[in-house]
Amino acid sequence: MDILLSQLFAGLSLGSVLLLAALGLALTFGQMGVINMAHGEFMMAGAYTAFVVQGVIGSAGISLLVALPLGFVVGGLLGLLLEATLIHRMYHRPLDTLLVTWGVALVLQQVARDVFGAPNVDVTAPEWLSGAVTIGDVTLPKTRLFILTVAIVCVATLSIALKATPLGRRIRAVVQNRDLAETSGVSSRGTDRLTFFIGSGLAGIAGVALTLLGSIGPTLGTSYIVDAFLVVVAGGIGQIKGTVIAATALGLMQAFFEYSTTASVAKVLVFVVIVAFLQVRPQGLVTVRTRSLV
C-alpha cells in the first residue's frame, strides 16, 4: 500500500515535470503550429540561468526564487529573438521550421558548451528543499513537492491569462481563426510574438525547476524534448487542459509500468499506448472545435 502511494506520488511528480516541459510547447506548437525543436534548449538556457544566478547571489535559498522569474525572461527573450529573426518568415511551413529550429538547437548547445564548458555544472538545492517529508511510510522529496507546486502555479496563471485577460482573448482569437481575428482588428503579428515569448519563457521556468532533479549540461534539453512533444500531441493540439491531462497520465503510466517492469520496458509500453491512442483519436484528447472549412 505504501509503495502504491509512493508510486502514485512518483507518477504525479513525473507528470508535473512533463507538464512544465510541455506547457510552453502547447502554446507555440499547439496554438501557433510551429514545431520548435529548440524548445529544449530554452529549458537548458533556464537551467544555466539558475547556475549563473547562484554564482552571483551565492545563497542557494534566495537564488532559486530569483532564478525562476529570471529564467522566464531569459527563455522568453531567446524565443522572441528566434521568432523575430527566423520563425516569422516560415509560418505555414512546418517542415522548414522543424529543420531551422533543430539547427538553432544545435547552435545553442554549442554556445552553451563554449561558454560554460562541456562538463555538467551543479546548482545546489536550497536548504529548505533538502530531504523529504515523510507521511507514514511514504517519502515525498521536498524538491518534487516544490516542482509540483511550480507546475500548478504555471498552469493556473496561464489558464487565467488565456481566459480572463484581453491578451488571452486575442491569443485565443488568433488560434481559432487567424483571418477573422485580423479582420476584427487584432494584430496577429504582435499576438504571435507575445505567445512565443510566453511559451519560451515557460521553458525557461521548466529549466530552472529541473536543476533540482537532473544534470545541467549543454544537452539537458534533448532529454526532455521528445517527451514534451508526446505530451502535446497526445493531449490534443491547442489545449492547455489536454496537456495537463496527458502529462499526468503519461507520468502515472511511466511510474506504474516502471514499477511493475523495468525502466526500458516502461518507455516502450508508454510509446505503444500513445501510438494506439493516436490511432483511435488522432486529434488528441481535447481539441478546439472551429467552424472553418477544411
Binding site: P94, L98, D179, F229, I237, L278, T287, T290, L293
Partner: peptide, 21 residues
C-alpha cells in the same frame, strides 16, 4: 488562409512524431 482543422492537426501530429523519431 490558415484554417485549423482535424486534417491539419493530424498532419502536424504525424510530422511531429516523425520529428521525434
Amino acid at each position: 488562409m490558415r484554417p485549423r482543422t482535424h486534417a491539419g492537426t493530424r498532419s502536424l501530429g504525424a510530422l511531429s512524431i516523425a520529428a521525434l523519431a
